[in-house]
Design a protein around this nucleic acid. Sequence first.
DNA 1: GTGGTCTAGACCACG
DNA 2: GTGGTCTAGACCACA
Lengths: 140, 140, 140, 140
Amino acid sequence: MAQQNVTFAIDTQSPIAVYVQIENLIQFAIASGRLKPGDTLPSVREMSLTLDINPNTVTKAYRDLEILQLVTTRRGVGVAISDKAPKICKEKTIDMVRGHLRDAIAECLAAGLSAADINTMVKTVAAARVAPYSGNKHKS
Amino acid sequence: MAQQNVTFAIDTQSPIAVYVQIENLIQFAIASGRLKPGDTLPSVREMSLTLDINPNTVTKAYRDLEILQLVTTRRGVGVAISDKAPKICKEKTIDMVRGHLRDAIAECLAAGLSAADINTMVKTVAAARVAPYSGNKHKS
Amino acid sequence: MAQQNVTFAIDTQSPIAVYVQIENLIQFAIASGRLKPGDTLPSVREMSLTLDINPNTVTKAYRDLEILQLVTTRRGVGVAISDKAPKICKEKTIDMVRGHLRDAIAECLAAGLSAADINTMVKTVAAARVAPYSGNKHKS
Amino acid sequence: MAQQNVTFAIDTQSPIAVYVQIENLIQFAIASGRLKPGDTLPSVREMSLTLDINPNTVTKAYRDLEILQLVTTRRGVGVAISDKAPKICKEKTIDMVRGHLRDAIAECLAAGLSAADINTMVKTVAAARVAPYSGNKHKS
DNA sequence: GTGGTCTAGACCACG
DNA sequence: GTGGTCTAGACCACA
């Protein structure tokens, strides 16, 4: 019910827009159950201070999440996870994430790697649980 | 030695820029051996007509590939795969592709999927060899 | 003469501000004769508890109503419907309500509905006497 | 297929946000068939000049429409009505518009008007096809 | 204190 | 030329 602590790791240098990173972090937190209906998000001002970014950027992320019906906003009160959020998130997030995985695998195959190669890589990578790849050119 | 036919599947709706898609397709074709040193690429004009995209876009892709030393351009002759291309490509492409796979897996983990879930998905996806994901443009 | 019971249905999710909803409900009650001059409204404290909203919000509504001369506030006594209230309300409220109806119809026409469509909808809606619409907050 | 002319009447003084007015106008145009899939919207810069508002405001409207999948945006190209737009619009717009009408009628009833009164008003108003009501306090 | 809207202006990516 | 992102800062509405 009360406010939730979610670890927010934003990479300003990433090719992925900051506001999208915020959206994804929140989506993932909902999908994985770390954020539950009724939990409130940090206020726009607070998060902008924490992440050292412009409040408008946070607002943009929060608005998108509201349009997606993942959060409900009340002026003068704050932003809270909606009741529908988990359901929506589990569907959309899994779809998105699976889509990206599918893309990555398709790329590997196109690049001439065999299915066996890919399996090996998956094991290695999953085991390492590495930090996000910062190569550009892939997304948007 | 002469011109090679490479299947070009461009998705203008994809969040990935068209010129990047072209570069990737060619890189993948080189990495996997479908394009070999000496093979010539379609002319800018021809490819722009084939794919129904702006010639400038093709030009940009070819120029990038030349900067990467994957192709050589000779006036009046055309654009050909360079001798160094396979070596460069195998390194760079594998790196890139692995990076993307790593990203996708990291995302899956962040979204709360277990390693087992991911393995299952990999098998399914690899078996299907599906078309590229055309998910929401606003997400990473 | 004494305190009146008015059914208060506040929708905190509505795009309409809570204090406006309160004002409207009271205005409507006066216009329709459910509240008469001399009737007292619930105290700020009582109403804020009943509706589970911030006391400031109730205060604001009451203050607005006083400015409109619909209620009179006497320290230690409470807030009572003024003598002029019915007259003022019948004019203002009908005007407002007609304005909203006009808006809604204009919108329907703009959206491409025919006058016949609208008539049908009016009949259906009036017959149903449904709960307030809680549509997308981002739309008008 | 080519660009479409849609009459855009924005009221900067309206309580409804400018970007919402833009969204509504476009939605209505789609719902009523004046805008069809493939039609392109005026460029952000063009519309901002036409309406004499900030480009960011137009961008905001266009982004929302894209999230709602009513338009597709391509960098360097422009914004076009999506194929799904008519279907989505006819559903959502009718819903929204009916919701507003429902609200207005509920208000009329609450204000003490009889169903007969309302019917009369509807006929009058629909016949007049008046300009939008500019009373404040109703929406957002 | 909360979020919402709008402006002005900068810089980037794409075709 | 197109749209996308971000910043800085102002002003408003709400609780």
